[in-house]
Amino acid sequence: MNREGAAPPAEATGLRVLLAEDDIPVAKGYQDILQKAGYEVVGLAHDGLQAVEMCENLRPDLLLMDIKMPRMDGLEAARAINMDPKSAFTPIVLVTAYADQQLVTRAKRCGVLGYLVKPVQLDDLIPALEMAHTAAQKISALEGAVRNLSEELEARKVVERAKGILMKRLKIDEEEALRMMQKESRRQRIKLKDLARAIISSHSIMNS
């Protein structure tokens, strides 16, 4: 690894990094640089399979992994990590001897968020990790927003169904049914969607 370049930032990042590299001197070089930059190196995997296992157990904030390793290569390890719910959101930066378009495409399909070409330059290593971590945060936030939207739409469907039941049962209009549900949810101190589910459940029992 080429150590030439600007010194790493002095401020601690607090991020926990797992290294996956079968060349011990190279791994130690990464470790020294990362620790000086404020990262916490939580473990060193010597092959791809061990990287998968350690990623699941240690839950690192980042994984820096060589593509060519014993037992399981970096791409297969990345795929396995992203298929496991316990480690699926781990940002992975892959280190490779070359980077053609085919490799980049395969890496993306395996969930890799960044890559470095050997010999790794010091002033490329930290930015690559930072960008991968930022990208992972954005993806997580986007997935969270989509999940929240899906839950909101589902809640609206449940409330609409419950309103329909009350309108039919009590011979009231939609506005009155909604006011009644809102008042009851406040009285019981439960969410409107939970009250709606209770109304639907009660209706189903009565009509079974």
Rank of each mutant, 00 (worst) to 15 (best):
M1T: 10
N2L: 14
E4R: 10
A6G: 09
A6E: 10
A7G: 08
A7K: 10
A12Y: 00
T13A: 13
T13C: 04
L15P: 01
V17Y: 11
V17K: 06
A20L: 03
D22M: 10
D23W: 07
P25I: 03
P25M: 08
V26Y: 02
A27C: 11
K28A: 14
G29D: 14
I33G: 04
I33N: 02
L34G: 04
Q35M: 13
K36S: 12
A37G: 03
V42H: 09
G43R: 01
A45H: 01
H46R: 15
D47T: 02
G48S: 11
A51S: 11
E53T: 09
M54C: 01
E56T: 13
L58S: 09
R59F: 01
P60I: 01
P60T: 13
D61S: 12
L62S: 09
L64I: 09
L64H: 09
I67D: 00
K68V: 15
K68Y: 09
M69E: 08
P70R: 11
P70I: 07
D73M: 05
D73R: 06
G74K: 07
E76I: 00
A77Y: 01
A78G: 11
N82C: 14
M83S: 14
D84T: 09
P85A: 09
P85R: 03
S87W: 08
A88N: 11
F89M: 13
T90I: 15
I92V: 15
L94K: 07
L94S: 07
T96R: 01
A97E: 10
Y98A: 14
A99N: 03
D100H: 11
Q101M: 12
L103F: 14
L103S: 06
T105F: 11
A107I: 06
A107S: 11
K108E: 14
R109V: 03
G111R: 04
G111H: 00
Y115L: 15
K118V: 10
P119A: 12
P119H: 08
V120W: 02
Q121R: 14
D123S: 13
D123W: 02
D123Y: 04
I126M: 05
I126E: 01
P127T: 06
L129T: 08
M131D: 06
H133V: 02
H133K: 12
A135S: 15
Q137T: 06
Q137S: 12
K138I: 13
A141F: 03
G144R: 08
A145K: 11
R147W: 01
R147E: 15
L149R: 08
S150V: 02
S150Y: 07
S150R: 15
E151C: 00
E151W: 00
E154P: 00
K157M: 11
A162V: 00
K163G: 00
K163F: 00
K163C: 11
I165P: 00
I165M: 07
M167R: 15
K168L: 11
K168I: 03
R169Y: 07
K171T: 06
K171Q: 12
D173R: 03
E174K: 14
E175R: 12
E176T: 13
E176F: 06
L178R: 14
M180G: 03
Q182R: 11
R187L: 15
R189Q: 12
K191G: 15
L192N: 04
L192H: 04
K193A: 13
K193Q: 10
L195G: 03
A196S: 05
R197W: 04
I199H: 05
M206K: 10
M206R: 08
S208V: 07
